[in-house]
Design a protein around this nucleic acid. Structure first.
Lengths: 146, 146
DNA sequence: AGAATAAATGAGAATTATTCTCATTTTTTT
DNA sequence: AAAAAAATGAGAATAATTCTCATTTATTCT
């Protein structure tokens, strides 16, 4: 993962430093949404907290970090690399798990149409959208391992 | 608005106090998303900050307050009373305005179907969903008054 | 209505998340 | 390899939210 991380940094023309490599490695390894605290402990203090926040802001700036908040308003981040599939999120209020969800192509097309209508109606240019779903996993849920 | 506020508190069986009435009045008056800070200044220190947060939590508990975050992760609240139309949000990154948006009945039906598929696939019970749209108002936008 | 009980409030302290400062270290440029 | 530029770590500063506790206000029970 180290080579991959270096490649990414190089591709986006940001200088290659150890903290950045470590953060990218961690994000590449999990490849699913994670809170800043979880990320911090995954990094085991190999990166200072202030640096972690700075690196996350760097990744946002080059547009490969998606940031949003959980239903409890905790900030959650995930790496989104070019070519990654557009997806949404499903939040379990029981275990706090956040699951990546892809909606059908057909549905996304309809959403795009709906968004075009909204753009006209409100005189907006809309670049991005998010669908968030909230609920609970049932006792068979693999993700929550209940 | 005072009577209306008292009625709401009484309906939901929470005790009728001045801070609660004042917060409800403010939320009823604007009836669109507002940050805690904006709400605080609208209330002109007639309600202590700690009390404001407490009252907001009370309203969440009785399920008439919708809380989410702006793209900059600022908490935003809005009153959602029974019978209010289900709606979503459109965020302008230029002026910060948050606009209530209703999607077509047809689209919501399709979203519900899509959600049913997700429930099956992930063994979830989904109670709620949100569609958020991000963009900029153009120069004719009424809301942003550019 | 009035006393007793329970709940809510205000003020500020405590906590948490994030940003900022600045001296030192690391990376990039030349 | 030296000079210049950028990034880092440690902790201070800031901001948002919750907590504490003495006082006030609302509700309940005669």
């Amino acid at each position: 993962m180290e080579e991959r991380s270096k490649q990414i940094l190089s591709d986006y023309k940001v200088s290659i430093t150890n903290p950045r490599i470590l953060v990218l490695e961690a994000l590449l390894e999990i490849k699913s949404p994670i809170t800043v605290d979880e990320l911090q402990s995954k990094l085991k203090n190999k990166v200072a907290k202030s640096t972690l926040y700075r690196v996350l802001n760097d990744l946002k700036k080059i547009d490969i970090l998606n940031e949003f908040t959980s239903p409890e308003n905790t900030v959650v981040v995930e790496l989104v690399l070019e070519g990654d599939q557009h997806h949404h999120h499903l939040f379990c209020s029981d275990c706090g798990e956040i699951i990546d969800v892809e909606l059908s192509k057909n549905f996304e097309d309809l959403l795009d149409k709906e968004i075009k209508k909204i753009e006209k109606k409100f005189n907006f240019i809309i670049q991005d959208h998010r669908v968030e779903m909230f609920g609970q996993c049932t006792d068979q849920c693999e993700n929550c391992k209940k």
